[in-house]
Design a protein around this nucleic acid. Structure first.
Lengths: 343, 343
DNA sequence: TTGTAAGCGTTATCAA
DNA sequence: TTGATAACGCTTACAA
């Protein structure tokens, strides 16, 4: 069970270390016969190249860093699953870091990854503007940074996400179709005004000349779920008392949407009779929810898989050619109607 | 932004490489004055030691491998969160692998980790007997293996889990207390007969002389959630038609418990009126469920944190002293009563 | 107190 | 076709 190295092989076979290395790497300089001898010996003795030595020599760590808001989140863990799946087919290891929806944490995560010598970074930015300059510098001077899930519009790099605009548009249209036009839209405070989910929502209203109530735009803190619950339930309580009473809620993220369901249940507000609910959510068991949730589902596995694959593609290119490969990939969402909008 | 090495520092300061190394490592051989010069220069120029070189030299990778059934699972991701948190305070990187509840995958994961040269392994075994011999060999000859969540009773090593027996006992007692004595117990097929959750359940029945119906022990496939849904709903449909109709369900894992809720909702079975439901679950938003779920909650963060901490402790000990440090830590669960058992 | 040199396991250059 | 040697960045006897 003891580790065997090239040196051992060389000694046992009466070859030099360099010849063995070349044989193992299928170099043209080595005779077929020797290659076979070496390969056989290596296989029989379970030789495994030492990745550390290889990396040290090669100047890269064969490691990719991933920064997400929180591992402990269904949406994120599905993406991570996709990233892992893609990574199995490569030589890269994955190191995961959590920004916890905080811009400064995000920077620390990236710094930590850089210290570890990662060859590339996969990042779901905290906000649309977080660490822009820093990231730009990293991407052009240190290692490629591929963005996924959320984008930083002013950062030129590879981006993989979903067509949020379309998803939000369709979901809103559905609410309107079932005659729920007084829609509360709940987002995280990291969402900028130009967020495509907000834009899709507004677009749907505008097209059909439905009035937009600014006070129906709710913003909550994604960093802390207790605060979030408080903020949402307080805001909803007030809105339900106001003269223009809402009759639907659109949740901009999975956590928001599902928490809203819980909050409404505790407030004894009937869904969908009093308030219809729809939102982004990748929760796997919509029927277990109260009531079964209508949702916009994102192809999370594919996001992760694509992001990692594209990053590896970049890594395999010469640095100066990379910028030409930059693209923004928008995958399609799917929309699922269940009881929470069933009228 | 270019990487700086010990060599650069040595040249700039007119010192030798070894002196710089020693200064940086606070060796007694180096004068205070030199140390300060070196440290300052290092700090000013953002010197970061190359971990690869350090590891290659030191003969360890500073990496810990973690094998879980699936990242994409609330319970697991909470544990991973705990592991990460603990790892921040160490020099170790974490590499995660997924066994997908399959014994052979589990072995491949471990092999892959060993190839990467991990210094230790954190493993949530697929079953109570999976890969016993292999793991024993690894643990004694290669690197420490710490078990968490599920245990392999015949493997002598460090183990971190929860008092499942007690949790199951309490939950069952609660069902009995609300006069629900015909309890269907649903487990995964990886659970052996001696699993503490099953034992706790049986004990509660036995103590109060409640009959145990073998056909109320349901087993489902945890590898595939569609199959699982099918198996459970089919079995329940039959049981509900039989002469001894169940009036409660105990779910042995979070996925089972929540899926049961969804299945019952689709079968239009009223919870808790017709069937009360309780089970292990670490789902964060019990109130969003239909109905709000009574559950046994495990201290997932703490499990992960403890497991990693203990593994690092082992790593810091001399190999031959490790076995003396082995212990089995059982953390307490908490039980939460909600609507699904509210009678 | 500081420096020299060897070595961790590879790969790459150049000679033989 | 094969081998000797240097190098990647760091640590550590051993010498000076």
């Amino acid at each position: 069970m003891t580790k065997i190295t090239i040196k051992h092989i060389a000694q046992s076979l009466g070859l030099s270390v360099s010849s063995v290395s070349k044989a193992l790497n299928d170099s043209y300089e080595i005779s077929e016969e020797t290659k076979i001898r070496v390969r056989n010996y290596a296989k029989e003795n379970h030789y495994k190249p030492n990745r550390l030595a290889k990396s040290l020599k090669g100047g890269h760590s064969n490691t990719i860093g991933v920064v997400v808001c929180s591992i402990n989140n269904i949406f994120v863990s599905q993406i991570l699953d996709g990233i892992q799946k893609a990574s199995y087919e490569t030589e890269y290891d994955i190191i995961i870091m959590q920004s916890h929806e905080n811009v400064e944490n995000e920077k620390s995560c990236i710094e930590a990854l850089l210290n570890k010598g990662v060859d590339g970074i996969l990042l779901a930015p905290v906000s649309e503007t977080s660490n822009t300059e820093y990231l730009r510098q990293i991407n052009s001077e240190v290692c490629p940074v591929v963005l996924f899930d959320r984008f930083n519009p002013s950062l030129e790099t590879m981006k993989i996400g979903v067509n949020e605009y379309k998803g939000a548009l369709q979901a809103t249209q559905h609410l309107i179709r079932i005659n729920r036009k007084k829609i509360v839209f709940i987002t995280g405070c990291q969402f900028g005004e130009n967020n495509p989910r907000i834009q899709g929502f507004k677009k749907a209203l505008k097209t059909l000349d439905i009035p937009f109530y600014p006070k129906f735009m709710l913003t909550c803190n994604l960093e802390n779920s207790e605060m979030m619950d408080q903020q949402i339930s307080q805001a909803l309580t007030e809105l339900l008392k106001s003269k223009v009473k809402p009759n639907a809620i659109f949740g901009a993220t999975g956590v928001i949407t599902i928490r809203v369901l819980g909050i409404l249940a505790q407030m004894k507000v009937k869904v969908p009779e009093e308030i219809a609910v729809i939102g982004f959510s990748n929760f796997d068991m919509p029927f277990a929810l109260n009531p079964s949730l209508s949702s916009i589902r994102q192809p999370t596995q594919e996001i992760g898989f694509t992001a990692l694959t594209k990053l590896v593609d970049l890594l395999n290119m010469e640095q100066h050619k990379r910028h030409r490969a930059y693209e923004t990939i928008l995958l399609d969402t799917t929309i699922h109607f269940n009881k929470s909008t069933d009228l």
